[in-house]
Amino acid sequence: MQLNGPLVAPGSSFLEEVVAVSGVDIRACYQCQKCSAGCPVVSAMDILPSHIIRQIQYGRREKVLGSGSIWICASCHTCSVRCPNDIDFAKVMDCLRHIALGSGVVAGEKEIPVFHKVFLDSIRGTGRIHELSLILRFKLKTRDFFKDAGLGWQMFRRGKIKLLPSGFAGSKEVKEIFRVCGKGATR
């Protein structure tokens, strides 16, 4: 069994694709911009949340999927709870990331998707996140070995860094989960 996600009819517009995959009807958006006004990370975004919706409606697939905004979103759900039209925009952002990973479009933020991949590879390997291994694996990818090294030492001195991962007997089941549904995770 391999899970493929919802079916999108061939020839669909980008708007139809997003509505089908996310299950969220973004056509209800009337551009009040409340999502953008309340977004805590908006200053680091290249396209405002409300403008992402507009660009989807315009069919600008590459622009949206290649934006930094979809990766900068911290999934805090502030936009979703404040939308007067009940658009669950946090869910739309999840969906855009999923589509982006399979689209071949170059991600607008380099390290964030890499971090997600390293994180999931760690789970696939040991069933749980062993923080030290995760950080070392990620540093091997970014080659930025000295970032937060001082902080790491402070945390080590305070007994917050566990040196070895804990034993875990469910790895067969975890591998099965990743075999069946880790499609996005392996890209």
Partner: peptide, 14 residues
Amino acid sequence: TCCGSTSAHCTDEA
């Protein structure tokens, strides 16, 4: 097991 955290929901719904 790990809950999958942010990285799972950002990359794969299933």
